[in-house]
Protein backbone atom coordinates (compact mmCIF):
# COMPACT_ATOMS: atom_id res chain seq x y z
CA UNK A 1 0.00 0.00 0.00
CA UNK A 2 1.33 3.40 -0.97
CA UNK A 3 1.11 5.87 1.85
CA UNK A 4 0.21 9.40 0.81
CA UNK A 5 2.36 12.13 2.23
CA UNK A 6 2.22 15.91 1.83
CA UNK A 7 3.84 17.02 -1.40
CA UNK A 8 4.68 20.55 -2.50
CA UNK A 9 4.92 19.26 -6.06
CA UNK A 10 3.91 16.00 -7.74
CA UNK A 11 6.26 13.04 -7.63
CA UNK A 12 6.65 11.94 -11.27
CA UNK A 13 7.75 8.76 -12.91
CA UNK A 14 9.94 8.98 -15.98
CA UNK A 15 7.04 8.88 -18.44
CA UNK A 16 5.30 11.75 -16.70
CA UNK A 17 8.50 13.73 -16.57
CA UNK A 18 8.99 13.13 -20.28
CA UNK A 19 5.66 14.81 -21.02
CA UNK A 20 6.75 17.87 -19.08
CA UNK A 21 10.13 17.89 -20.79
CA UNK A 22 8.55 17.68 -24.24
CA UNK A 23 6.28 20.63 -23.52
CA UNK A 24 9.25 22.55 -22.24
CA UNK A 25 11.16 21.70 -25.41
CA UNK A 26 8.42 23.33 -27.50
CA UNK A 27 8.50 26.51 -25.41
CA UNK A 28 12.27 26.47 -25.47
CA UNK A 29 12.03 26.23 -29.26
CA UNK A 30 9.88 29.36 -29.24
CA UNK A 31 12.52 31.08 -27.12
CA UNK A 32 15.25 29.99 -29.53
CA UNK A 33 13.26 31.37 -32.47
CA UNK A 34 13.24 34.72 -30.65
CA UNK A 35 17.01 34.61 -30.27
CA UNK A 36 17.01 33.80 -26.57
CA UNK A 37 20.09 32.88 -24.64
CA UNK A 38 19.49 30.00 -22.24
CA UNK A 39 20.31 30.50 -18.60
CA UNK A 40 20.25 28.32 -15.51
CA UNK A 41 19.34 30.11 -12.31
CA UNK A 42 19.48 28.86 -8.71
CA UNK A 43 16.38 27.99 -6.72
CA UNK A 44 17.39 30.43 -4.02
CA UNK A 45 17.32 34.15 -4.54
CA UNK A 46 18.63 36.92 -2.33
CA UNK A 47 15.93 38.69 -0.37
CA UNK A 48 17.47 42.02 -1.35
CA UNK A 49 16.75 41.25 -5.02
CA UNK A 50 13.09 40.65 -4.26
CA UNK A 51 13.01 43.82 -2.16
CA UNK A 52 14.48 45.74 -5.09
CA UNK A 53 11.75 44.28 -7.31
CA UNK A 54 9.17 45.25 -4.66
CA UNK A 55 8.01 41.62 -4.49
CA UNK A 56 8.27 41.66 -0.72
CA UNK A 57 5.83 44.55 -0.58
CA UNK A 58 3.39 43.32 -3.20
CA UNK A 59 3.29 39.59 -2.43
CA UNK A 60 4.59 38.97 1.11
CA UNK A 61 1.90 36.33 1.56
CA UNK A 62 3.41 34.19 -1.21
CA UNK A 63 7.07 34.55 -0.30
CA UNK A 64 8.88 31.56 1.21
CA UNK A 65 12.04 32.22 3.16
CA UNK A 66 14.89 29.76 3.10
CA UNK A 67 16.58 31.45 6.02
CA UNK A 68 15.33 34.31 8.15
CA UNK A 69 17.04 37.29 6.58
CA UNK A 70 19.14 36.52 3.54
CA UNK A 71 17.74 33.94 1.16
CA UNK A 72 14.32 33.17 -0.24
CA UNK A 73 12.99 30.48 -2.51
CA UNK A 74 12.54 31.98 -5.98
CA UNK A 75 8.89 32.87 -6.58
CA UNK A 76 9.57 33.35 -10.31
CA UNK A 77 12.42 32.93 -12.74
CA UNK A 78 12.65 36.41 -14.21
CA UNK A 79 13.83 38.19 -11.03
CA UNK A 80 17.17 36.45 -11.49
CA UNK A 81 17.40 37.92 -14.99
CA UNK A 82 16.93 41.50 -13.82
CA UNK A 83 19.41 41.06 -10.97
CA UNK A 84 21.93 39.41 -13.29
CA UNK A 85 21.71 42.28 -15.79
CA UNK A 86 21.57 45.07 -13.21
CA UNK A 87 23.59 48.23 -13.92
CA UNK A 88 24.14 47.31 -17.55
CA UNK A 89 23.58 49.19 -20.77
CA UNK A 90 22.02 46.95 -23.39
CA UNK A 91 23.32 47.85 -26.83
CA UNK A 92 20.67 45.64 -28.43
CA UNK A 93 17.39 44.11 -27.34
CA UNK A 94 17.95 40.96 -25.32
CA UNK A 95 15.96 37.76 -24.89
CA UNK A 96 16.76 35.36 -22.05
CA UNK A 97 15.09 32.07 -21.26
CA UNK A 98 15.34 29.76 -18.29
CA UNK A 99 13.45 26.90 -16.72
CA UNK A 100 13.35 26.98 -13.00
CA UNK A 101 11.69 25.67 -9.88
CA UNK A 102 9.53 28.29 -8.25
CA UNK A 103 7.93 28.41 -4.83
CA UNK A 104 4.88 30.24 -3.52
CA UNK A 105 3.13 29.82 -0.20
CA UNK A 106 -0.32 29.15 -1.62
CA UNK A 107 -3.02 28.58 0.98
CA UNK A 108 -4.40 25.57 -0.85
CA UNK A 109 -2.73 23.28 -3.33
CA UNK A 110 -3.79 20.77 -5.94
CA UNK A 111 -1.35 18.83 -8.13
CA UNK A 112 -1.15 20.21 -11.64
CA UNK A 113 -3.25 23.23 -10.78
CA UNK A 114 -1.92 25.14 -7.81
CA UNK A 115 1.29 23.91 -6.27
CA UNK A 116 3.63 25.21 -3.61
CA UNK A 117 6.58 24.18 -5.76
CA UNK A 118 6.32 24.24 -9.52
CA UNK A 119 8.35 24.44 -12.67
CA UNK A 120 8.16 27.42 -14.92
CA UNK A 121 9.77 28.23 -18.25
CA UNK A 122 10.11 31.93 -18.74
CA UNK A 123 11.17 33.97 -21.73
CA UNK A 124 12.29 37.42 -20.65
CA UNK A 125 12.58 40.28 -23.12
CA UNK A 126 14.46 43.51 -22.47
CA UNK A 127 14.48 46.38 -24.95
CA UNK A 128 12.46 49.20 -26.47
CA UNK A 129 8.73 49.38 -25.92
CA UNK A 130 7.79 49.04 -29.60
CA UNK A 131 9.89 45.89 -29.94
CA UNK A 132 8.36 44.50 -26.75
CA UNK A 133 4.85 45.16 -28.04
CA UNK A 134 5.56 43.48 -31.38
CA UNK A 135 7.20 40.51 -29.66
CA UNK A 136 4.20 40.08 -27.38
CA UNK A 137 1.96 39.48 -30.36
CA UNK A 138 4.40 36.95 -31.84
CA UNK A 139 4.62 35.14 -28.51
CA UNK A 140 0.88 35.14 -28.05
CA UNK A 141 0.31 33.35 -31.34
CA UNK A 142 3.15 30.90 -30.75
CA UNK A 143 1.91 29.93 -27.27
CA UNK A 144 -1.54 29.36 -28.73
CA UNK A 145 -0.11 27.01 -31.33
CA UNK A 146 1.85 25.01 -28.77
CA UNK A 147 -1.21 24.76 -26.54
CA UNK A 148 -3.48 23.69 -29.36
CA UNK A 149 -0.99 20.99 -30.35
CA UNK A 150 -1.12 19.68 -26.78
CA UNK A 151 -4.93 19.59 -26.80
CA UNK A 152 -5.17 22.70 -24.63
CA UNK A 153 -7.05 25.21 -26.74
CA UNK A 154 -7.91 28.23 -24.63
CA UNK A 155 -8.35 31.97 -24.67
CA UNK A 156 -6.27 34.98 -23.75
CA UNK A 157 -7.86 37.00 -20.96
CA UNK A 158 -6.86 40.18 -19.15
CA UNK A 159 -5.70 39.34 -15.62
CA UNK A 160 -4.07 40.79 -12.56
CA UNK A 161 -1.54 39.60 -10.02
CA UNK A 162 -2.71 38.57 -6.53
CA UNK A 163 -1.51 41.67 -4.69
CA UNK A 164 -1.52 41.40 -0.94
CA UNK A 165 -2.51 44.78 0.40
CA UNK A 166 -6.06 46.00 -0.08
CA UNK A 167 -4.51 49.33 -1.04
CA UNK A 168 -2.99 47.54 -4.03
CA UNK A 169 -6.45 46.98 -5.49
CA UNK A 170 -5.74 49.95 -7.73
CA UNK A 171 -2.62 48.25 -9.07
CA UNK A 172 -4.67 45.20 -9.95
CA UNK A 173 -7.28 47.33 -11.68
CA UNK A 174 -4.57 49.14 -13.62
CA UNK A 175 -3.07 45.83 -14.74
CA UNK A 176 -6.45 44.74 -16.00
CA UNK A 177 -7.22 48.08 -17.60
CA UNK A 178 -3.93 48.41 -19.44
CA UNK A 179 -3.81 44.70 -20.25
CA UNK A 180 -0.25 44.54 -18.98
CA UNK A 181 -0.95 40.99 -17.86
CA UNK A 182 -2.80 38.55 -20.06
CA UNK A 183 -3.29 34.90 -19.29
CA UNK A 184 -3.84 31.99 -21.61
CA UNK A 185 -6.66 30.26 -19.81
CA UNK A 186 -7.98 26.77 -20.36
CA UNK A 187 -11.77 26.78 -20.01
CA UNK A 188 -12.03 23.05 -19.36
CA UNK A 189 -10.32 23.56 -16.01
CA UNK A 190 -12.31 26.59 -14.96
CA UNK A 191 -10.09 29.09 -16.69
CA UNK A 192 -6.85 27.71 -15.30
CA UNK A 193 -3.98 29.93 -16.41
CA UNK A 194 -1.50 27.92 -18.46
CA UNK A 195 0.69 30.82 -19.48
CA UNK A 196 0.91 34.54 -19.04
CA UNK A 197 2.44 37.45 -20.85
CA UNK A 198 3.43 40.22 -18.47
CA UNK A 199 4.48 43.63 -19.71
CA UNK A 200 6.27 45.58 -17.01
CA UNK A 201 7.00 48.80 -18.89
CA UNK A 202 10.21 50.43 -17.58
CA UNK A 203 9.60 49.24 -13.99
CA UNK A 204 12.36 46.62 -13.74
CA UNK A 205 14.67 48.67 -15.95
CA UNK A 206 14.34 51.47 -13.41
CA UNK A 207 14.53 49.27 -10.33
CA UNK A 208 17.64 47.40 -11.53
CA UNK A 209 19.25 50.18 -13.55
CA UNK A 210 19.22 48.36 -16.85
CA UNK A 211 19.28 50.98 -19.58
CA UNK A 212 19.19 51.50 -23.32
CA UNK A 213 22.15 53.15 -25.09
CA UNK A 214 20.40 56.53 -24.69
CA UNK A 215 20.29 56.05 -20.93
CA UNK A 216 16.56 55.42 -20.62
CA UNK A 217 15.42 52.33 -18.70
CA UNK A 218 14.71 49.25 -20.81
CA UNK A 219 11.17 48.00 -21.01
CA UNK A 220 10.71 44.38 -20.03
CA UNK A 221 8.24 41.61 -20.61
CA UNK A 222 8.15 38.00 -19.53
CA UNK A 223 6.32 35.08 -21.02
CA UNK A 224 5.72 32.53 -18.29
CA UNK A 225 4.61 28.97 -18.92
CA UNK A 226 3.52 26.80 -16.00
CA UNK A 227 4.95 23.46 -17.05
CA UNK A 228 3.24 21.40 -14.33
CA UNK A 229 -0.19 22.58 -15.43
CA UNK A 230 0.51 21.80 -19.05
CA UNK A 231 1.89 18.36 -18.23
CA UNK A 232 -1.07 17.57 -16.00
CA UNK A 233 -3.74 18.48 -18.51
CA UNK A 234 -2.14 17.91 -21.93
CA UNK A 235 -3.32 15.08 -24.11
CA UNK A 236 -0.29 12.90 -23.59
CA UNK A 237 -0.49 11.26 -27.00
CA UNK A 238 -0.26 14.67 -28.66
CA UNK A 239 2.78 15.89 -26.80
Amino acid sequence: MIREYPQAAPVRCLNQQTVLDRIDARVRGLAASMGAREMQYPALIAREVLEQAEYTQAFPHLLMSACPTTWCLSPAVCYHTYAHLAHRTLEDPMVVTARGRCFRAETGSAPGERQIEFEMREIVLLGAQAWIDASAETARLAVETIARDAGLSGDWEAAEDPFFLPAAAGKALMQRLLKVKVEYQWPQAGGLALASINRHGPFFGQRFHIVMPDGTPVHTMCIAVGLDRWAHHARKEQV
Binding site: A158, A168, A169, G170, K171, L173, M174, R176, L177, L178, K179
Partner: peptide
Amino acid sequence: SLGIIDLLAFVETATGRPVPMRKVDM
Protein backbone atom coordinates in the same frame (compact mmCIF):
# COMPACT_ATOMS: atom_id res chain seq x y z
CA SER B 1 -3.23 53.09 -9.55
CA LEU B 2 -4.54 55.06 -6.60
CA GLY B 3 -6.76 57.32 -8.63
CA ILE B 4 -8.50 54.52 -10.47
CA ILE B 5 -10.22 53.34 -7.31
CA ASP B 6 -11.72 56.77 -6.77
CA LEU B 7 -12.58 57.04 -10.45
CA LEU B 8 -14.56 53.80 -10.28
CA ALA B 9 -16.26 54.95 -7.11
CA PHE B 10 -17.23 58.22 -8.80
CA VAL B 11 -18.71 56.42 -11.80
CA GLU B 12 -20.62 53.95 -9.64
CA THR B 13 -22.00 56.67 -7.38
CA ALA B 14 -22.95 59.01 -10.20
CA THR B 15 -24.66 56.32 -12.25
CA GLY B 16 -26.10 54.40 -9.32
CA ARG B 17 -24.79 51.14 -10.76
CA PRO B 18 -21.74 48.97 -10.09
CA VAL B 19 -19.06 48.76 -12.76
CA PRO B 20 -18.72 45.12 -13.84
CA MET B 21 -15.15 43.80 -13.94
CA ARG B 22 -15.50 42.94 -17.63
CA LYS B 23 -15.91 46.64 -18.31
CA VAL B 24 -12.63 47.58 -16.63
CA ASP B 25 -11.13 47.93 -20.06
CA MET B 26 -9.54 50.77 -22.02
